[in-house]
């Protein structure tokens, strides 16, 4: 792993490493709306069921962005790892989803 890389984990400790400093909670969030075309395709797909590819991609993109934002915040604090990461998704408005991720920024030795 390079010098700049951030260790992400959803466990409380990092196996094989020792956490020396803790900085507190960091979080990342983003709100995404799907466009009309995707909405139409999704409503068509709802008739037959199955995976909504457009939405899968959209939510994954959003999750990546939220994670990047959280990493940026942790980096500002001088952390090199984020532990105990939790994701949550909520619908804040019609047709829009919020992706939220939070964890504890720490420094491993």
């Amino acid at each position: 792993m390079g010098k700049d890389s951030m260790i992400l984990t959803n466990t409380e400790t990092i196996l094989g490493k020792n956490i020396v400093e803790m900085y507190g909670v960091v979080n990342g969030s983003t709100v995404r709306a799907k466009h009309v075309g995707r909405d139409l395709m999704a409503s068509l797909k709802n008739i037959v069921g199955g995976e909504l590819k457009g939405y899968t991609e959209l939510l994954q993109e959003a999750r990546d962005e939220a994670t990047q934002r959280m990493i940026a915040e942790a980096r500002k604090l001088g952390a090199n790892a984020i532990v105990n990461i939790r994701y949550s998704t909520s619908s804040v408005a019609q047709g829009a989803a919020e992706i939220y991720v939070y964890g504890t920024a720490v420094k491993v030795g």
Binding site: V20, E21, M22, G24, K76, L77
Partner: peptide, 10 residues
């Protein structure tokens, strides 16, 4: 592990 206080971002 020790807690290191940090200022909130501007």
């Amino acid at each position: 592990m020790v807690f290191v206080p940090k200022e909130p971002p501007a």
